[in-house]
């Protein structure tokens, strides 16, 4: 069954708060519906000799699950987030230093990885790290009828035939990272990418609004 464009595609309400923690150099919490992630950034700081890279900063990403210790799932998500951040951060400006990004899952109600990516970007922005572009994460699900759902809830994720998460950059709306699950056709993939690019505009607008509010003089 091919995916057909439906008009009832929407993003759940977002919320974001920046610099809510005092210890980290940058922190942000990002909520998408009920899904919520807290992100903190430390750095650029001293790096362990074993992890030192002579021409750029070492980026370390840690995802802490809510219950129990981080496992394989968290490791794979960490890698996705790290590769996205590495693509947008200008790491060469801080050689031989370390950047640590810690993501704490507050509540998982679907589209966790995209929420992690958004929280990470907001925290990096708050830390004032030089970046070539911003990025955001969008999760798309294709349900059994072939309808595309953006920003699915946990129940929608469970029922879906395919689940895709894309990281989109703010400059050219290019795909920085993609993680897919389930089966889909090439046409559906392209449609999902197109939808994500559309949805990313909304998220970037939200970033813009929140930064504008932050640096405004009045509420």
């Amino acid at each position: 069954m091919e995916a057909c464009g439906s008009s009832s595609v929407s993003l759940r309400e977002f919320g974001c708060e920046q610099s809510l923690l005092s210890r980290p150099d940058g922190s942000a919490s990002f909520t998408q519906g009920d899904t919520s992630v807290l992100a903190a950034v430390y750095g650029p700081a001293e790096v362990k000799v074993s992890k030192e890279i002579y021409d750029r900063a070492t980026l370390e990403v840690l995802i802490q699950p809510k219950v129990g210790l981080p496992g394989v799932r968290e490791r794979s998500q960490e890698q996705c987030v790290r590769e996205t951040c590495e693509a947008s951060l200008l790491l060469t400006l801080h050689p031989r230093s370390s950047l640590t990004l810690i993501l704490q899952v507050i509540h998982d109600a679907g589209s966790l990885l995209s929420c992690c990516l958004n929280a990470a970007c907001m925290a990096l922005m708050d830390a004032g790290l030089p970046m070539s572009c911003l990025f955001c994460g969008v999760t798309c699900a294709i349900d059994t009828d072939g309808q595309i759902i953006t920003d699915p809830t946990a129940a929608q994720e469970k029922e879906s035939r395919a689940l895709m998460t894309f990281a989109v950059d703010s400059k050219d709306r290019k795909v920085l990272m993609s993680l897919t699950k389930g089966s889909f056709s090439v046409h559906e993939l392209q449609q999902c990418i197109a939808v994500s690019q559309k949805a990313s505009e909304k998220i970037f607008q939200f970033y813009r609004d929140s930064v504008r509010r932050r640096y405004s003089k009045t509420l």
Partner: peptide, 17 residues
């Protein structure tokens, strides 16, 4: 001032296909 919330927003799907 550091916090912002946005309501549910629809995503345009007109020329996606």
């Amino acid at each position: 001032i550091t916090a912002l919330k946005m309501d549910e927003t629809p995503v345009e799907m007109t020329d996606v296909t």
